[in-house]
Write a protein that binds this DNA or RNA. Structure first.
Lengths: 206, 206, 206, 206
DNA sequence: TCGTAAGCGAGACGGTACGTCGAGTCTTGCT
DNA sequence: AGCAAGACTCGACGTACCGTCTCGCTTACGA
């Protein structure tokens, strides 16, 4: 009974450590349910039941349904773009892939719900902003590369340019999903690229 | 085709007719509550209490919270634009006004909620689409007028052009509301206008 | 224009007179519904729908559901007893007939509901008391006749004696309906009759 | 047949056990409210509010208002009779006590409501029957003792005799509560006792 | 023959309670 | 401590019924 204290620095808090595998099961089921019934139809009870987890275990990790939903999206693979060296093609590829995720995962139906909730919830708003920004990083990079290649004028604001490409896609996805059309997005991308080339950034006369 | 409308006696259905004033009171309170606590915080009980209406009276007219919310937005005034004859200024004015409504009315927080619900609900989706399209009509008209004036090439697709202007604004409003900036929108509008001028609409030589 | 006042006292109020046939239709349907689903399941809306009457027409006559139910029982035929000259047989016949009404009409299920409501409602209580007393009149009369015939001692309190006969039947009907048994009631009646004969009413020593 | 009960470990079901104190609080408040406004005025919302319980907690235990009311009566103390050795006095004491409970507790107004509901509800009917039978046990015992003492003939059916005593009291309580009179019940008890003595139970010579 | 006054069917209205469901918290015994 | 299970409070849901209140229409009567 007289035990010698182990040499370990014991940076660990006492008690049983959390079971990493629970995390995965919970988020997987969350994502699955989101795909089936959307965010409004998502219930924590259902997640608990299907993941064979207790609600306490879920709430120990994420304090609200919204946080749980955001966390679930970390399971989605990041966009992987292979660049062709031609901005228009790259952008269209990016939009197509982004839109594909929106169409084939629960993301499309969940995103608006999270946006809605974020309106009154600063924490959530920050978390959502970060997650979205991270997922869009590859798209912004495309534009930066085009500037480096000289396809776009030096000094072009890549983030702003990115908004010009992604904005219309967002609009279709939210308000006019049935007319989601890659051809249209190519046409619009062409316009934006032409505009970016025609306008000298930041300079006086313009 | 020019048919004289017959003086229909409009055979009234029997029974006590619905009281138009209840409709108004209900929608007004709905809008007020939306402004105070957002869509998620909206409860039919609260609307009933504040409008001195019974829940039955509400549900008789709108079968869900979502329909009620959409109906309430019909109370918002339509956008009224005075055109300057210069597309850039007109677009910036339009975006500013549209964004102003988003910022000063419950619309911003309600819209995403409705979009979310519309994902699983065809009726709501249609209703939402119509309402949004109607409210955007003045913006599309700006572009049509610019084409008529020759500021934009003949054959320009006005609806598509409209998406290029409104898309980025939506993006900011939903995902980055703190950086909502008219200056940025002017910059972006300038790019789009330049692009539209540089590109000949696909109908021509190609 | 100078009209001689008609000899009639003109006891009529102005306006359209009530339609007697509505009364009948309403009460009939009330009774029918009571038989199908009991008092708790009875709704004024259902009565209105099935009698093709408006609720206003119903409430103009009876101000509550309870009054309506009581009124409906006036449609039930009064008990008609043919006396044999032998009290035991007469009482058994009376109990059998009374119990038959309880078993074959909604009365059994409605009676307790009305009693319950009458506990807090003086008007209803009085009305119920009257109705019940009236329906029991023939039973009390049987006993009075037996006294006249000398089968029971002079001075016997007929109402109290009636209670001794009807009480047990009531108890079975309310709390033990499955053991409703004419044979048992005959046995009990025999006991009561013997008791009434053995006891000299009102006298000193007893 | 004489089996030794095994020392069962009583395998507890998993999860948080029900809180016995909630049960008590709920039933106490139910009884209190019944006393104040009767069965018709009883609402589950009110019980929940006053017992600081959620409606879910109530409905988890009792699925209807009726079951709740019956359960509440298990809180009423059983009748405690001290026998004098004289049947008439014992019966009058019993009736007085029974009637006292009816007058001083919500039982009187609730009983008819439960009877009414039991008419269409087998489960409730059984439960009500059991509860009533249990509460009446002491009264039946009085009669059994009188038979043992020889005050009543051997072979007397105690349950049936009990009905002769209790029936008239029920009748007064339900239909003529204002004339509830112990003196009358004594008179009637005297008649019944005399009758029971005069009649030889059917088993004998007949 | 008209106007007034009421009755009528239909159904909307304010209220109030229903029984259900979900979020987030708490409490068991076991690990 | 963490875990599964499940009870707990709170609060909203959408439905149903009561008793009242309009509608437009239909009788009667008395001027």
């Amino acid at each position: 009974m007289a035990a010698a204290a182990p040499p370990k620095p014991a940076k660990r808090s006492p008690g049983r450590p959390r079971d990493k595998s629970r995390e995965k099961a919970i988020l997987q089921q969350t994502l699955a349910i989101l795909g089936e019934v959307g965010f409004v139809g998502l219930t924590v009870d259902a997640v608990a039941a299907r993941a064979k987890a207790s609600k306490a275990t879920i709430y120990r990790r994420w304090s609200t349904k919204e946080e749980l939903a955001i966390a679930a999206f970390d399971l989605l693979p990041e966009l992987e773009l292979d660049e062709t060296g031609n901005l228009e093609d790259d952008i269209v590829g990016y939009i197509a892939q982004y839109g594909g995720v929106l169409r084939t995962t629960p993301l499309r139906s969940v995103l608006p719900s999270l946006v809605a909730e974020a309106m009154h919830n600063r924490d959530l708003s920050d978390k959502l902003h970060q997650t979205v920004a991270r997922r869009r990083r590859p798209g912004v990079r495309l534009i930066e590369h085009a500037v480096e290649r000289g396809e776009l004028p030096a000094g072009t604001d890549a983030e702003q340019a990115h908004e010009l490409f992604i904005g219309p896609m967002l609009n279709r996805s939210f308000f006019d999903h049935e007319r989601f059309s890659i051809d249209d997005f190519r046409t619009m991308a062409r316009v934006v690229i032409a505009g970016l080339r025609a306008i000298k950034p930041s300079t006086g006369a313009g």
